[in-house]
């Protein structure tokens, strides 16, 4: 319980990306993501991953942790990717237990893996060092409705509070010799735990509302304007646009993978 780390905290220093305006970083990430899913050659995707890794490395990241995050995502899709060569019709590449893996399906799986990783690396590189509150303010200045941004900021705040509450309840359960196992008792008990967490957090939300009304909350959260764009932010935007343009040009230069 002495661990003061929060769930939503990165330990990386802000690095290269951190020197620029969060709005521009958000927009750039979004444009890169859209471009990445549209690509059909592998070269621009590899370049994008390389670029993201280069940006990320300026923030002296905790590489094992970063890679673990990427591997978790890859773990989610690996089964689907492994099945693709066998379900995609085309030129046979090899055969396992009578199932034919097609060359086209194999390429398709590689392409999906590259796209997913390109987007994830870009997100980690450009947004990874952003703290949640800045992200919320940047979202608001990009015309995301105030209500949604409020919900975002409140959620970020209470995730930490409730995670601690969860750990406290788990500690109390451990003190009573509760151990996670694969049985009905465990599932029911975890269900009770979340029921309790919901009841407590509901009460907490009533107190929050009362405290906020006391301070004149009228349904809007006044976040104030983000600082004006500096010359270097515009420079960053132009640079990113140029790089993205180059990568898109590469897409046309190289033939599609399939």
């Amino acid at each position: 319980m002495s661990d003061k780390r929060t769930v939503l905290q990165t330990h990386d220093i802000s690095g290269l990306a951190g020197r620029f305006d969060p709005r521009m970083r958000l927009l750039a990430t979004f444009c890169f993501a859209i471009a990445a899913v549209g690509f059909s050659s592998w070269q621009p995707l590899l370049v994008m991953i390389g670029l993201a890794v280069a940006i990320k490395s300026t923030s002296r990241p905790n590489w094992p942790r970063t890679l673990r995050m990427v591997m978790t995502m890859d773990g989610f899709i690996i089964v689907m990717l492994l099945m693709l060569p066998f379900s995609y019709p085309g030129t046979p590449l090899f055969t396992i237990f009578g199932f034919v893996a097609s060359y086209e399906g194999f390429l398709r799986a590689i392409l999906i893996a590259l796209k997913a990783n390109a987007v994830i690396f870009m997100v980690l590189a450009l947004l990874g060092s952003l703290d949640a509150v800045t992200l919320g303010r940047a979202l608001e200045s990009l015309r995301i409705p105030n209500k949604l941004v409020q919900l975002f900021l409140f959620t970020v705040r209470y995730i930490d509070v409730l995670h601690r509450e969860y750990l406290r309840l788990r500690l109390a359960m451990r003190a009573r010799a509760f151990k996670l196992r694969s049985n009905m008792h465990t599932w029911r008990t975890i269900g009770y735990l979340f029921g309790m967490l919901l009841v407590r957090s509901y009460d907490r939300s009533e107190r929050i509302l009362a405290a906020m009304k006391c301070r004149g909350y009228d349904g809007r959260l006044h976040l104030g304007a983000m600082p004006a764009l500096q010359a270097r932010d515009v420079g960053f935007a132009v640079m990113m646009a140029f790089i993205l343009g180059t990568i898109i040009w590469m897409e046309f230069l190289w033939p599609p993978l399939l």
Partner: peptide
Amino acid sequence: DIETMPRVAVLSAVFFVASLVHVP
């Protein structure tokens, strides 16, 4: 509405915490 904002936020945080929990 105003009344429900903190409640939705707190509950959405509970569900985020739930997504961090692995059940055997």
